[in-house]
Design a protein around this nucleic acid. Structure first.
Lengths: 234, 234
DNA sequence: TGTACATCAGTGAACGCGCGTTCACTGATGTAC
DNA sequence: TGTACATCAGTGAACGCGCGTTCACTGATGTAC
């Protein structure tokens, strides 16, 4: 089943429906049962991936069972599990993107920008454990198409970060390539922080160690910035 | 079947046997058929993981089929696929450890230490694609025990690197915690270089870009070193 | 507002298949004498 | 060196199970008049 473009809603019953349900409209032209089952499938898969299991290890029948629906109902929404997975990648990054967009418009206190960024990331990881866990698990996981999609999204973040960095004093005269180098270093660090937080035992002191190391690493990187230009970058 | 400690070989027919076969003795007390099948299973699994597939997606029967052996023969060597996987983790890191040990004893030219390190890593990734691919795929993959084993090995590398770093001027007075911070930053960077190399299309120019970015990142990190102490590390 | 109709999301039975695991076996390899 | 024996790695048949996918169906939802 291929996804159809969103035409015009036949009816507006917005007040009865949650925000996530409304977002579902972007994917399903019909309201009601159809959208609900589609979301039940997505949520079932995320719930099952929350523990130790990887998405590519889930069977179609397991997911439909968890979603409380008959296996054949799956095919009304996706042709394969891989398609469901791509939907979940998009959804996971959407929440992350929303967070970053709000930071970009509101800004963070510049004097404590590192502490605030790390804190925000950690808070977000906890608030969206299932999405982050799914992404971490599938980043090098089973389906090639999911891996590619995730890799693309992460590269996109690095690109966006490098334009943000360009606005800082000292960095505003850096070559694009050098900004990308720094951005990818920072994004990589953030990704491993997120993965460490996910895998860390839930004890708060283990987490505090991770946070402290992450802050140190970011501070350390900023120290390299003034020195970089004196060393001609090739 | 639990692995038995290596006692004394009943016979020495070394000349007939390859180095890898001899290494196999460390895992199997008996020579001959037994060891050969065990290795056939390991190599079959690595071969199958080389493409897009993840280890946790392999079935026991597939592996034995690829190894040219009947499914039940598997149980003479491993109780589960997970056990095979742990063997492969150990084997993969063993080759990497051997490389690093030789670097540590022979050393690299200090004036081009970054270039040489990156070059060596890239060479090693190409020479052991199957091992690196396996590790990358399973780092956040299916079996929790494999993930833990890999995580432990990577942490071990960071610990070893931080003692190596302590021998450098400027770094010799750093606090242990700060050295660990820097080491984990460098190991993370190296890990993502390896993963990028693996996933990069085999065109040499794409690879050249990755290498250049990696070198820049490492140079950038060294620039932060002299500045760090002036900023009291808490 | 009420009714007849079209759409299509979800159902339930059925299929053939590859899976992990069991079991009693076979026969090659190494040991004791 | 030669023979009888023990060990145990590898065999092959068989099992029950969950899987993905098919099909004709049912009945709720939304539309046209």
């Amino acid at each position: 089943m291929t996804r159809t473009a969103w035409a015009a809603p036949a009816k507006f019953v917005m007040s009865e429906r949650s925000i996530t349900e409304q977002l579902g409209d972007l994917q399903s032209a019909r309201e009601g049962r159809g959208t609900r089952t589609r979301q039940a499938l997505q949520e079932a898969a995320l719930r099952m991936v929350e523990g130790d299991r990887s998405f590519s290890g889930l069977s179609l029948r397991e997911v439909t069972r968890e979603a409380g629906v008959v296996p054949t109902a799956f095919y009304r929404h996706y042709a394969t599990m891989e398609e469901l997975g791509l939907d979940l990648v998009a959804e996971s990054f959407e929440t992350l993107r929303r967070m970053i967009r709000s930071v970009r418009s509101e800004g963070l206190p510049t004097d404590r920008i590192i502490t605030s960024s790390v804190e925000l990331l950690v808070k977000h990881v906890h608030a969206h454990r299932r999405h982050f866990g799914f992404i971490a698990r599938e980043r090098y996981g089973g389906y090639a198409s999911l891996r590619e999609a995730i890799r693309r999204e992460i590269r996109l973040f690095a690109a966006e970060l490098s334009t943000d960095l360009a606005r800082f004093p000292l960095l505003d005269r850096w070559a694009t390539e050098d900004l990308q180098m720094l951005a990818s270093l920072m994004v990589n660090a953030m990704v491993s922080i997120a993965e460490d937080i996910l895998d860390a035992p839930q004890r708060p002191d283990a987490e505090a160690d991770i946070i402290r190391r992450a802050e140190k690493q970011l501070v350390f990187m900023t120290l390299g910035i003034p020195a970089w230009r004196s060393q001609p970058p090739r």
